[in-house]
Simulated assay, not measured.
Amino acid sequence: MSNSRQSRSEPAQILLVEDNPGDVRLTQEAFKQGRIENELHVVSDGNEALKFLYQRGGYADVPRPDLILLDLNLPKKDGEEVLEELKGDSDLQAIPVIVLTSSRAEEDVVRSYELHANAYLTKPVDPDDFIETVRAFEKFWFSVVRLPPEGD
């Protein structure tokens, strides 16, 4: 048996890169209501996201995420810059990235896919709809999709 998390013997590791505390709370609430085991790690800007992914500074012992939820509008280093760096790194590029943002701008959608985002979700304004959206993609990504095994 491979040590892939597909067996669900370990929780999925999810990195949420989000600077809006309200959206962080709604995402945490959605995951809490879901039946899928996962661990949600939260960082609030692009620089912290990259430190987490490269396990630098205070993040030396953090797990490699199975999935990244990335807001585009971030302080310091924006989501597009994080996505570009992540997808340009051969060790990290296999981690699926879901852009979860309030932007409905077509150029943001196009640019995210050009930078190899795996999906683009627009955050609903209504909190209940937001929770439902997060739960739907959680179910899809962790029940239906096969994620790549962790790199060696």
Rank of each mutant, 00 (worst) to 15 (best):
H41G: 08
S4R: 09
V144A: 11
R146F: 00
E150L: 10
F137Q: 04
N47G: 10
L86W: 00
V24Q: 13
R8I: 11
N118D: 15
P11S: 01
L15P: 05
S103N: 13
R25K: 14
L53I: 08
H41S: 12
K123F: 11
A49L: 08
E150H: 10
N73D: 10
E29H: 12
Q33V: 10
W141F: 13
K77A: 08
E132Q: 15
L86A: 02
P148Q: 08
Y113N: 03
Q6T: 06
D126N: 14
V110L: 12
E37F: 04
G151M: 04
I68E: 00
N38K: 01
F52N: 07
E106D: 15
K77P: 05
L69Y: 04
L72V: 10
K87I: 07
R64I: 06
D45K: 11
K32A: 07
D45S: 13
I14W: 00
L40E: 03
L69A: 01
K139E: 15
S112K: 02
L15S: 05
P96Q: 10
L50P: 07
F142A: 04
I95L: 00
I95P: 01
S4F: 05
V62N: 07
L86H: 05
P11I: 02
G57Y: 08
D66C: 07
Y54M: 09
E150W: 00
Q6R: 14
G34Q: 05
Y120K: 11
S9G: 08
I68M: 07
L70D: 01
L92N: 12
V97G: 02
E18S: 09
S9Y: 10
S7G: 10
P124S: 04
M1Q: 08
A49R: 04
D45E: 15
S90Y: 12
G79K: 02
P127A: 06
S7V: 11
P148L: 04
N38T: 07
K123A: 05
L50R: 01
L147W: 11
E39W: 00
D129Y: 02
P21F: 12
V134L: 04
